[in-house]
């Protein structure tokens, strides 16, 4: 038993668990393995997956961003409000402004966290209130309908039979994976997360790196928001409520440590897939939404507890 425990890495065990879930649900529901369900499952997870992938980098650097849900809501409202003007800007400009929304929020988060040395959780908690509040102010608490070709294509279009959101998710994962695991910038993220002081002493510009990461997280949240906007055809301030819980759960499930310096993109992909499969499978097997929330919380606790106990055993050894 001990030998097995040593040989199986975190990532393998995650994918084994994923396989177990897939087999389980293919028994409990005949529709689970249909191509329609698989496609909709993957499309659904892309939206939170993009944010989760980028958040992984932030969390490896020992940061956290819980303003993701707020940024998603704000982006949907900003984009749909700009489009519903009587003489709207060209759509590419509107979408750029949408992306810029997330970037600006990320910039402010990053500035507070680096220049003022503020706690990332509290900073982004404040940003969450501000973004959500601004979304309510701009939309006046109304839903803004938006039927537009480009956003519709981003969310519902296909490219070689693959839905665009899935492609965006895979692209994000690929880019972040290469940056994190194959580049100098990626190594510096690990170094900062492991020990900020020694990273700074060895010549890494800690503040700049962190700043870039927060800006990218904001932009990733905006992309998620634009996808959500296209899927629902409506921009509203309530979009993305609770998204941060889902995203953080996926990242932690994937083995990224809250204390920084540890984590992989593969792990997060596995975490996102497990969450997606679990929710889809439970729903399709007839479990109600109120119970899903309980499962989500339990899963978060069990995942983190497992890593905690595992780390403690390793230290003891």
């Amino acid at each position: 038993m001990k030998v097995i425990g040593k040989k199986i890495t975190t990532n393998t065990s995650l994918f084994l668990f994923l396989g177990f879930l897939i087999i389980l649900f293919s028994f409990t529901s005949e529709h689970f393995l249909s191509s329609y369900n698989i496609t909709s499952l993957l499309t659904n997870i892309s939206y939170s997956g993009i944010a989760a992938i980028v958040l992984t980098l932030v969390m490896i650097s020992r940061g956290l961003d819980i303003s993701i849900g707020g940024v998603i809501g704000l982006t949907t409202v900003v984009v749909s409000a700009l489009y519903s003007q009587s003489d709207p800007l060209p759509i590419w400009l509107i979408l750029t402004i949408g992306l810029g929304t997330g970037a600006v929020v990320g910039l402010i988060n990053g500035w507070c966290i680096t220049a003022l040395d503020m706690d990332p959780i509290i900073t982004t908690l404040g940003a969450m209130a501000i973004t959500r509040g601004l979304a309510y102010v701009i939309s006046d608490s109304q839903s803004i309908l938006m039927f537009e070709e480009t956003t519709d294509f981003i969310s519902n279009g296909v490219f070689f039979n693959i839905p665009i959101p899935i492609i965006l998710f895979m692209l994000t994962a690929l880019i972040c994976g290469v940056v994190l695991h194959k580049s100098k910038f990626g190594r510096s993220i690990y170094a900062i997360g492991a020990n900020e002081v020694s990273a700074s002493l060895s010549g890494i510009s800690v503040n700049k790196t962190k700043m870039i990461l927060y800006v990218f997280t904001g932009m990733a949240a905006s992309i998620s928001g634009i996808i959500l906007l296209g899927q629902t055809s409506v921009g509203m301030p309530q979009h993305g409520i609770g998204a941060e819980l889902e995203v953080i759960t996926a990242v932690l499930l994937g083995g990224t440590a809250l204390s920084g310096g540890k984590g992989t993109i593969y792990g997060t992909i596995a975490g996102v897939l497990i969450l997606g499969v679990l929710f889809n499978g439970l729903t399709i097997s007839g479990v109600r939404y109120v119970h899903l929330q309980i499962f989500q919380g339990l899963l978060l606790l069990v995942a983190v507890a497992t890593y905690e106990i595992k780390t403690r055993n390793e230290v003891a050894r």
Binding site: L245, I248, L258, H291, Q293, I294, G297, L300, V304
Partner: peptide, 13 residues
């Protein structure tokens, strides 16, 4: 924070 993020969802559920 993570603990209570989890129990927050569980208790609300």
């Amino acid at each position: 924070i993570i603990t209570t993020l989890g129990t927050m969802a569980i208790i609300r559920g």
